[in-house]
Amino acid sequence: MHRGSCLCGAVTFEVSGTLHPPDACHCSQCRKQSGHFWASTDVARAALTLHGADKLTWFRSSEKVRRGFCSTCGSSLFWDPIHKDTISIAMGAFDLPTDTRLAMHIHVANKGDYYEIADGLPQNPH
């Protein structure tokens, strides 16, 4: 079981089972939403228990995706592909230990110009 929350604690969650190795998305939408790049893990919706859902605000960033954040403190928490059986959860929202490691970088063709990716992990341009 893994637990996590937003900064103020209004939204909390539990994920049953082990966490899938996360990826870091460098697309412009994820950078603008998170303030840097977005590191998240995909979990089955059935494995997620959410508390404080009334404090979540959803922003529909495309026809296929919505992004969830705490309406009280503004913490970015979820990237939700609406028609899939999984939801992505921000790695920074989890309590430690997460027992996983970053697996790869995606959308690196759109990364910010103010940093380099130098950790040796695979980099997918898209």
Score class of each variant (00 low, 15 high):
Pro22Thr: 10
Ala103Asn: 03
Phe78His: 04
Tyr115Pro: 00
Leu7Glu: 14
Gly120Trp: 14
Asp54Val: 10
Leu77Arg: 01
Pro81Val: 08
Ile87Lys: 03
Pro81Trp: 13
Lys64Cys: 09
Ala47Ile: 04
Pro81Thr: 07
Ala53Gln: 14
Phe69Pro: 00
Trp38Arg: 02
Val11Ile: 12
Arg67Gln: 10
Ala93Asp: 07
Lys111Asp: 03
Met91Gly: 02
Arg60His: 13
Ser88Tyr: 12
Gly52Cys: 11
Ala39Thr: 10
Lys55Val: 12
Gln123Asp: 07
Pro97Phe: 07
Cys6Tyr: 08
Met91Phe: 06
Ala47Tyr: 02
Arg31Trp: 07
His36Ile: 09
Met104Gly: 02
Ala109Cys: 03
Leu102Gly: 01
Asp95Lys: 01
Tyr115Ser: 00
Gln123Leu: 09
Leu56Tyr: 04
Lys64Arg: 14
His83Asn: 15
Gly35Pro: 01
Cys27Asn: 02
Cys30Asp: 08
Cys27Met: 05
Ala44Tyr: 09
His126Gln: 13
Phe37Thr: 01
Ala46His: 09
Ala44Gly: 09
Thr86Gly: 07
Cys6Trp: 06
Cys8His: 08
Ala53Thr: 08
Arg3His: 12
Asp119Asn: 04
Gly92Lys: 03
Cys30Ile: 06
Ser40Thr: 11
Ser76Tyr: 07
Glu63Cys: 07
Arg45Glu: 14
Ala44Phe: 08
His20Trp: 14
Ile89Thr: 02
Ala90Glu: 09
Ser16Glu: 15
Ser62Ile: 10
His105Phe: 06
Gly52Asp: 13
Trp79Glu: 12
Asp85Ala: 14
Thr41Ala: 11
Val15Asp: 05
Lys84Gln: 15
Met1Pro: 01
Arg67Phe: 08
Asn124Gly: 03
Phe78Met: 10
Asp99Tyr: 09
Ile106Val: 04
Lys64Ser: 13
Arg31Leu: 06
Gly120Cys: 09
Lys55Thr: 13
Ala10Arg: 07
Leu48Glu: 08
Ser5Trp: 07
Ser76Gln: 13
Pro125Thr: 03
Cys6Thr: 03
Gln33Ile: 11
Leu50Thr: 01
